[in-house]
Write a protein that binds this DNA or RNA. Sequence first.
RNA 1: GAGGUUGUAGCUCAGCUGGUUAGAGCGCCGGAUUGUGGUUCCGGAGGUCGCGGGUUCGAACCCCGUCUUCCUCCCCA
Length: 456
Amino acid sequence: MAQKPAIPKGTRDFLPSEVARRTYIFDTIKSVFKTYGFAPIETPSFELSTTLMGKYGEEGDRLIFRILNSGDKMKKADVEALNEGNLPRFANSLAEKALRYDLTVPFARFVVQHQNELSFPFKRYQIQPVWRADRPQHGRYQEFYQCDADVVGSDSLLYEVDFVQIFDQVLTRLQIPGFTMKINNRKILSGIAEVSGEADKLIDITVAIDKLDKIGEDGVVEELRQKGVSETAIATISPLFTITGSNEERLAQMKTFLSASEIGLKGIEELEFVLEQTKALGLERAEVEFDVTLARGLNYYTGAIFEVKVHDVKMGSICGGGRYDDLTGLFGLSGLSGVGISFGADRIYDVLNELDLYPSDADASLTLLFANFGQSEAAYCMRLSKLLRQKGVDCEVYPSDAKMQKQFKYADNRKVKFVALIGENELKEGKLQVKNMETGEQIAYTEAELLAFFTA
RNA sequence: GAGGUUGUAGCUCAGCUGGUUAGAGCGCCGGAUUGUGGUUCCGGAGGUCGCGGGUUCGAACCCCGUCUUCCUCCCCA
């Protein structure tokens, strides 16, 4: 071994026990999605650059992994653009393909492309990896799995209500003890910008107030100034920083604040509906909080905005989502409203590891190991294994007649539930020894009894 | 993309102002126990000190570059 092999930064390997835990997470999410009527689709891991570029804001483009053209296509490089200093155009000429950055934009592309094969409202879920050329940090990877559920072709707020239930169901089933679902509405943010007289600075304003809990009131004011927001506008916005009380009380205060803004009041109305319906349905573990400062960077959201954070753990949001009225419009099909959510599987995996929340059978391994006592005994065990496997029992025969100590140690490491000891004597007497590795108890069975025991 | 930080055995980490042959615990392998694991006891193997260059009589330690880790921004799952 000349040099130790390595994997790229921000990626990870998963051992069998780790994959078992991740499978448990994926299966939990899938089963809930399914009960709400979502069906799975898949899209390619990479898309045409033009499909992705420009869909995630200025910062987003920087974080998209580009795939270098190969072979003769390299000759298509736009050297002129390079000389002119137009790096984006030069990059586009070098890389016609890019790894997907999220699952929502490819889904919008998918819907437009297959519009005549789908019936609307179209509900799909999608669990696949995405890639971001971000600087890795705790809970931040360059390759990670998103678990998305979206519905397009309906502007019904009942779907927002469903998604709130889905967040609650999934995270409750995963045994996460406490988590808060923050909810806001982009129309309320538009209303704020409108009321302050800076409607054209909507993005700057929302990005700034989104940082309230991080940089504080003074920090937000400072950032607003830097972005060129007027002092009168800042003075108008400032009272929002100190809004408190229950969701109902906050909504009431916002209603007053936005009384002059039609779009703002529309946002309040939508949010009220979702919160009322949610209250009527009830929640298991989720706490719902209306947070005016919740903005979510994605600039395609137009209505509800969601974010979920786990209590008492140092981790960014584990889920996000929202409504986007015209995402498919970017690909030439307008008039379709969509709403969706995303579970960050890798962050959930990290949280569950940190809080040690896996059920004991999440990493269950082999059910039965046949100890190997030699050629003829092993041959008998192989026949018995085949019978058991046909009944769906997972089992295997130890590959060589090594010392019992070694065979048992192997069984122990593999977390095997039972070890069968079938040597010369057992075969002669027709008494097959089966040891329970947890209790240490050992029982002799006839072949028929053994088959019955494991297939019962 | 900006600034900082980390890297020593499979894992977690010691290693003094630069000074012989780089250590420990756990794990691994073997034995005590030739048909019984998870406990105990005894023994053993295992390291180009992330990589490349430089300074020095001498570098795990100092300098430069690079990769990686974690952190703060940016942004986000």
